[in-house]
Design a protein around this nucleic acid. Sequence first.
DNA 1: AATAGCATGTAACTCGTTACATGATTAC
DNA 2: GTAATCATGTAACGAGTTACATGCTATT
Lengths: 177, 177
Amino acid sequence: MAQKNILQYLILGLLNQSPKTGYDLKRVFEDDIGEFWQAQHSQIYPELKRLEQADRITHVELIAGTKLKKKQYSITADGIAFFDEWRYSPTSEIIASKDEFILKLYFIDSKNDAHLDAMFTEQKTLHQAKLDHLLDRRQTLFSQQAAVDAHYGHYLILEHAINREQDYLNWLTTARP
Amino acid sequence: MAQKNILQYLILGLLNQSPKTGYDLKRVFEDDIGEFWQAQHSQIYPELKRLEQADRITHVELIAGTKLKKKQYSITADGIAFFDEWRYSPTSEIIASKDEFILKLYFIDSKNDAHLDAMFTEQKTLHQAKLDHLLDRRQTLFSQQAAVDAHYGHYLILEHAINREQDYLNWLTTARP
DNA sequence: AATAGCATGTAACTCGTTACATGATTAC
DNA sequence: GTAATCATGTAACGAGTTACATGCTATT
């Protein structure tokens, strides 16, 4: 065993919400959970094949327009069981994050280093843009209380992503006003 | 080209501070920059070989005790140039983080889900322990102003790690008091 | 008709983890 | 003496990225 293959659980969880095509999954990864997990379509399609071989999902072929085939996948009872095992098991490790800017900063010894201002200015811009985008998404998705109640976990993690960016920006600004 | 090989720059940066063995590097990864990057010795030793073949580092063999050989690596002029190119280049992408707990949370639809309390309690414990450890390290490394002045970047990233954990804990507590 | 987006796949490659393997030294 | 740590390496595997490849559909 080398790694954990969390991707399979995410795909199962998303199919557990509703049947989806590989392309649908790709978009959810981009839009909804991209802050906390990433997956390219080149990783999703093979994983769908493996999950189907393991009888955790099945698919039906749909025709859009006149010719365009798409495979709509659904989760099976086996798949649900396998997903539930993961989702309700303890999460006892924190997957450490990676941050290239932070590493570059580590090698700066002096407060007077000529590069510090440019480095911080750049990061402030990046993280402000990210924060703006997240605030926008909150506005779009959760401006009504009903949405919060129906997708509470999604709401919470978006709040967390927003907090995180605000905290990052706050640190940047405090360290280098 | 598939990925960025940031590890090589980190090794060069650490050797730029002072000559080190592979084992020394391993410990720095565990202790100092583990919050933001991880590397096992099985990744470090081959990378040292590659860097030496590229003439970016060299080594001398030292004998500890009577027999134990160790290879002490130093950075070359080429290595310094290569490192500087990286460290002073723009960091225009944010490497997205991964967090398994957050993903499990995403799939919880209702505020009344019976698992929520246990999930949050577990995470509070984990992140509190991490925060305690970081506060401890700040006390050890940076209780004197001279240390802050001599290793300003290291100080800043430790502050950031502390902020981040405090923010995480704060979110956990606010969402599930 | 051209462009952007929908839709699915494979190939090549690197990154990173876990496990295997060996031996010396220090502290108890 | 024995356990923990120092010290260095390789092997096997899975995870993840980038690039290659193809074709349909909707919008302007």
